[in-house]
Design a protein around this nucleic acid. Structure first.
Length: 297
DNA sequence: AGTTGTCAAGCTAGT
DNA sequence: ACTAGCTTGACAACT
């Protein structure tokens, strides 16, 4: 079992998420920014290793505007050495990497343009992991998308768009239950139609579910993962007190977390903590699990 | 140097 | 009609 956090480490004084305004795009600006981001990513993974955190989500702006028509730079080739080195580090230490395209990526949209741009963005995400020469256990996780007042049609659009995706995208793509539109049951239905693996999000499940316990839910999602997909991964968070339903907690609630982990016994997924204070909660989680005698790689 | 409005992109529920 | 929330964070123009 690995513990991870998404996109940014606030303890090390750099981020791998530098971007810039589209209006100030230039070839040089892109190259400088990517170099800076890759340097920081290396530093972040080094810090993670030192602290026993073996799972990390790379932010989508690692290569800003990579899927935008403005970007003509062959960044995979330009930075092939850097990507390869990062990937070698990940493989050497048996770390896990994931990515999560943001909310604008909607492959079941009714708007063909949105679908097309979304596919481009999915290709970019896969290309980053490909450039690192990571096997297909490095996943790209995506929400199903919009409902548009007719879930049945929206699902069938998802299924048909999914089937058309390039193979290099499909082999990394997993779908995640969300807190409003597509619950775990919906995702499992899509999985049956497509073979796509389902990444279980515990907090979204708490917001929107069909009465399944954590244990049942984690178990049924895990069954959609094939051997080649690696250990199932789950997202974990909890509600921020006093805020709107769906707000992520600022720091980990250790008791709630350990309760969740207890429900995953025997499945032992890799756990991504979607919590605002990022690496701080990841450290708390690792420590809490070690105290319980859990083996954390 | 520090603050604040704005940023490529979408959708839904709540006010 | 408008905003919060989602991986909210980071840039860039302003005090």
């Amino acid at each position: 079992m690995r513990i991870g956090y998404p996109c940014i480490n606030n303890s090390i004084g750099c981020t791998a998420n530098h971007t810039f305004r589209l209006a100030s795009y230039s070839r040089k600006k892109l190259l400088d920014t990517v170099k800076e981001n890759l340097d920081c990513l290396k530093k972040t993974l080094g810090w993670n290793l030192e602290h026993g955190i073996m799972f990390f989500r790379i932010g989508s702006s690692l290569v800003p505007f990579a899927s935008h028509p403005v970007c003509k730079v062959r960044w995979q080739e330009r930075f092939s050495d850097e990507f390869r080195e990062l990937g070698a580090f990940v493989r050497k230490h048996r770390m896990r990497i994931s990515m999560h395209p943001d909310q604008f990526i909607v492959i079941n949209s009714k708007d063909k343009g949105i679908v097309k741009r979304s596919v481009k963005e999915l290709e970019y995400h896969s290309q980053v992991l490909d450039a690192m020469h990571l096997d297909i256990t490095a996943k790209v996780q995506l929400h199903v998308g919009g409902v548009y007042g007719d879930k049945e049609s929206a699902v069938s659009r998802f299924v048909s768009e999914y089937k058309k995706l390039p193979a290099h995208v499909k082999r990394r793509l997993v779908i995640e239950n969300d807190e409003r539109c597509y619950c775990l049951k919906d995702c499992l239905g899509i999985s049956r139609k497509t073979g796509v693996a389902v990444l279980f999000d515990s907090f979204h499940h708490e917001c929107y579910n069909k009465g399944e316990s954590f244990r049942q839910a984690v178990g049924s999602a895990a069954k959609t993962w094939k051997r080649k997909d690696g250990r199932p991964t789950v997202d974990y968070s909890s509600q921020k007190k006093g805020r709107k339903k769906g707000s992520h907690t600022v720091t980990i609630n250790t008791k709630h977390f350990l309760g969740f982990i207890r429900e995953t016994k025997g499945i032992d997924p890799d756990v991504m903590l979607e919590i605002k204070d990022k690496e701080k909660s990841a450290l708390k989680a690792v420590e809490a699990l070690r105290k319980k005698g859990k083996k954390i790689r």
